[in-house]
Nucleic acid binder design. Structure first.
Lengths: 101, 101
DNA sequence: TTTGGAGATTGCGATATGGCAATATCGAAG
DNA sequence: CTTCGATATTGCCATATCGCAATCTCCAAA
């Protein structure tokens, strides 16, 4: 089931992988994800923690939501976001472990 | 040394991580990398294996080269490309293992 | 020195993406 | 019903990226 033979990566899977990568390949979105690796946060918490404006954070949460990478819980007065795709932890760990410039 | 506290990701490191992710976040470039995970190839081999045209492959090799993700050996008549960044194997493995749509 | 193959580069037009400011929604509290 | 805090959305401009075709550079062999 490995993808060692390139030509054999099912197109669907390649598309999903690319979508996920593109979703994470943005400084703010990546930082949001790292933040959520720790625990759930609401939008304002994230904006504050990251030193970014709320609209910016919300804007970048949108694609993450659509990709199913994060989940929202709107039961309380505010929206609580949490990581919804387990592999993201692996991905982040992969970078924190091996990506040293 | 983990990057659990977002605000503490050194800017340089974040930049490098983003550069690598953006570099890999393209279908053709990703497939090139997966191809090179197996063994070294020259440009025409890759083009043939991937069913793409040589200029396209060469074009996408450029950024990978500049990022230091692949290395070229021009000692023979042709250019032999190989993986130059070990973490890419982890990255690919991470996706092949966990990214199931 | 001419030729042919292997690779790299360049110039486009088309599309996508990002930042930013303004504004719209929505639910809970008054 | 009105207000307020929390989030989401929209419009616009600037910039980056993509695919593609045409070309160009090199080097080795003849």
């Amino acid at each position: 089931m490995a993808i060692s033979k390139i030509d054999q990566i099912p197109p669907e899977r390649l598309e999903r992988i690319m979508a996920v990568m593109k979703g994470v390949a943005h400084p703010l979105r990546f930082r949001i994800i790292v933040l959520l690796c720790d625990r759930a946060h609401n939008v304002n918490e994230m904006a504050a923690a990251l030193g970014e404006r709320q609209p910016a954070v919300s804007q970048h949460l949108a694609p993450l939501r659509m990709l199913g990478l994060v989940a929202v819980d709107r039961s309380g007065g505010n929206a609580t976001y949490s990581l919804n795709e387990p592999m993201l932890r692996n991905l982040v760990h992969c970078f924190e472990t091996h990506c040293t410039p």
